Amino acid sequence: MSRKIKLIWDFRGEDALETAKHHTIHLKEFASLEKLHFYEINILEKNPMLVSAFIIVNETDMKTFRDALKPHRGEIA
């Protein structure tokens, strides 16, 4: 069974929340266009000036997402 990987993008500043929300749209579009499975796409608001967008994918698909979308970091979900 493949592990789940969370790929994360951090956004900072006054517009961080809106930027992260917008980024999730692009994550969904990419997954749809490439016909790739994902478990969850969402945001995590750490504080008003730091918001992260993330996608949880199978480890087998991680390199495709990573190479195309350049996340800031990843972790085992």
Rank of each mutant, 00 (worst) to 15 (best):
D15E: 13
T64G: 05
F65Y: 15
H37G: 09
Y39P: 01
H26M: 11
R12F: 15
I43H: 06
F30H: 05
K6C: 07
L17Y: 13
A53V: 01
N42Q: 06
S2P: 04
L7G: 05
L7V: 02
T64P: 02
E59P: 00
I5S: 09
F30A: 12
N58R: 07
D15H: 03
I25V: 12
S2N: 12
E45G: 05
R66P: 00
P48Q: 07
P48D: 12
M49R: 14
T19K: 14
E59K: 02
W9G: 09
F38R: 05
K6I: 02
L33M: 10
N42L: 01
P71N: 09
S52K: 02
R3C: 06
A77V: 03
I55F: 04
F11Y: 15
I56K: 05
T60E: 15
D15C: 04
R73F: 06
F11A: 13
I25W: 08
I43D: 08
A31M: 05
T64Q: 14
F38L: 08
T64V: 14
I41E: 11
E29Q: 13
A16Y: 00
A68H: 07
K70P: 01
S52H: 02
H22A: 15
T24C: 04
F65S: 12
E14L: 07
V57L: 08
E75L: 06
T60P: 00
P71W: 07
L50P: 04
T19E: 12
L27C: 07
D15Y: 06
A31G: 09
W9C: 11
A31V: 03
E75F: 01
D10Y: 09
L17D: 11
S32E: 15
A77P: 00
I25E: 14
E18S: 09
E59T: 00
I43W: 07
L36A: 07
A77S: 14
T19I: 09
N47C: 04
S32Y: 06
E59V: 01
H23R: 08
S32M: 10
V51T: 14
H22D: 13
R66Q: 15
I56R: 03
F30S: 08
K70N: 13
